[in-house]
Design a protein around this nucleic acid. Structure first.
Length: 217
DNA sequence: ATCCCGAGGG
DNA sequence: CCCTCTGGAT
């Protein structure tokens, strides 16, 4: 099966069976999504969703978060990974949002990355979800699953991003991001991937080549 | 011991 | 390129 055929199989299957895939982060507005995505670094969405209700209640706006005490923000998020770094990032992000962006989250990826805690992946998520831009955010799931399915053999997240963006039609890029995330989270997991439950194992490079071990890639 | 929707700094 | 940040689940 050629690479192009794998892309077609991948897109056709999920277009039919997961036409409404979306993020599992809870949020009610763009600002809350930005906060949630920053918190999601190296942390499961479920754990992020555990702390955001209280966080959003205490700091509902960019200005309230910009003026927050570090210790108070830390206390809200101390049960997730890197709470100290993330607390600093959240406050710094809110301050730039207030002082430079007039409390309006930019749509431009490079402008988004001017905010602390917002790297390429987070910027792509915001551009895609909030502004409906055809950007592919490559996180650990997208990176791993893309390689296993033979959609890309890029050695860096950026290389995989460019590969996916080039080969997926523009109108499918946004939802393809969520297909890859959800497939990686529930089926094509890093450890003990559930290949027996995988509906597209027929197009998978990884399946059939693994020797009882998951360390093929 | 390894992984989770990474980012910043050296 | 590397390293550090760093809590909870498996």
């Amino acid at each position: 099966m050629t690479k192009k055929e794998r892309y077609i199989r991948f897109i056709d299957y999920f277009s039919l069976h997961q036409p409404n895939a979306q993020t599992e982060l809870n949020y009610n507005n763009p600002f809350e999504l930005l906060v949630a995505v920053i918190l999601s670094a190296q942390c499961t969405d479920k754990r992020v969703n555990l702390v955001t209700p209280n966080l959003f209640n205490k700091f509902p706006t960019p200005s309230s978060l910009a003026q927050a005490d570090l210790a108070d923000v830390f206390d809200c998020i101390k049960s997730i990974s890197y709470p100290n770094n993330k607390a600093k990032h959240l406050i710094g992000m809110a301050q730039i949002l207030v002082t430079e962006f007039k409390e309006i989250i930019p749509s431009d990826v490079s402008l988004l990355q001017k905010m602390p805690g917002v790297g390429r992946k987070t910027a792509n998520v915001i551009a895609s979800i909030i502004y409906e831009a055809p950007t592919m955010a490559v996180d650990t799931h997208v990176f791993r699953v893309s390689k296993r399915l033979g959609l890309s053999n890029g050695k860096t997240p950026l290389a995989v991003e460019n590969d996916l963006t080039k080969n997926i039609p523009n109108d499918k890029i946004r939802i393809a991001h969520h297909w890859l995330i959800l497939h990686g989270r529930y089926i094509c997991t890093a450890r003990n991937p559930q290949c027996g439950k995988c509906p597209i194992q027929g197009m998978c490079i990884f399946f059939g080549n693994r020797k009882g071990d998951i360390k093929l890639f």
